[in-house]
Design a protein around this nucleic acid. Sequence first.
DNA 1: CTGCATCCCTTTAGATACTG
DNA 2: CAGTATCTAAAGGGATGCAG
Lengths: 119, 119
Amino acid sequence: MPGFTCGLDATLRLIAGKWKPLILYFLAQGGPTRYGELRRAIRDVSDKVLIQQLKELEADELVKRTDYKEVPPRVDYSLTPLGHSLAQALVPLCTWGTENMAEVARVYAERDSWKRGPA
Amino acid sequence: MPGFTCGLDATLRLIAGKWKPLILYFLAQGGPTRYGELRRAIRDVSDKVLIQQLKELEADELVKRTDYKEVPPRVDYSLTPLGHSLAQALVPLCTWGTENMAEVARVYAERDSWKRGPA
DNA sequence: CTGCATCCCTTTAGATACTG
DNA sequence: CAGTATCTAAAGGGATGCAG
């Protein structure tokens, strides 16, 4: 039901998913990447979730899956032109995070401490 | 537990939440905004969720809440300097969405159709 | 190596009604 | 006007084990 309130809304629907931005960003840096490598690069993600998100990205035409039909299996993932342009739009977020990482870590630590209670 | 794999990772933790980017972006455009106005601007969000996300943004020092202690109540929300800089980093995503909205709407429509099955 | 299936749990979000 | 409270639904995510 296309009825985006604004461009940001449209974009957000594509990158909603815990690991999607990370996947896009990683692929943008490294070119075609094999499944296993991706899996290791995106720490802490399970097979199920990674595959799931890759499929959604593929359905959204942001990522291209290439199956070389070899044995043992070899598959790699790369960005489509659309995916690549989106990844570019992610760059400022990455930059922001890098520049403000200390600040972010600080507020994050505070949040966690009151979450667990003062003690 | 600060241990961000990269800047993007750090940023994502702050803007994870269905409406947060939209809230930040709206505040960036409009300056201090009263609760009711925000509520109407961010379509389809419930009071509960909106308040919840605003509180988290406030805890993360991205948004500032001002209570004028009047009756009837008057409260407004605005961006902190940190929040403002983050909102700036969101601009390219918005631009991307606007530029590619037709494309996004198309892939989205396709997804929805096969989701509901052929027939 | 790549990836699917299953089961389960937590988080997130939404509806509704109510209060100072 | 600006929220709170409560309940429920759904999505997202994770562990494990199996398969081609």
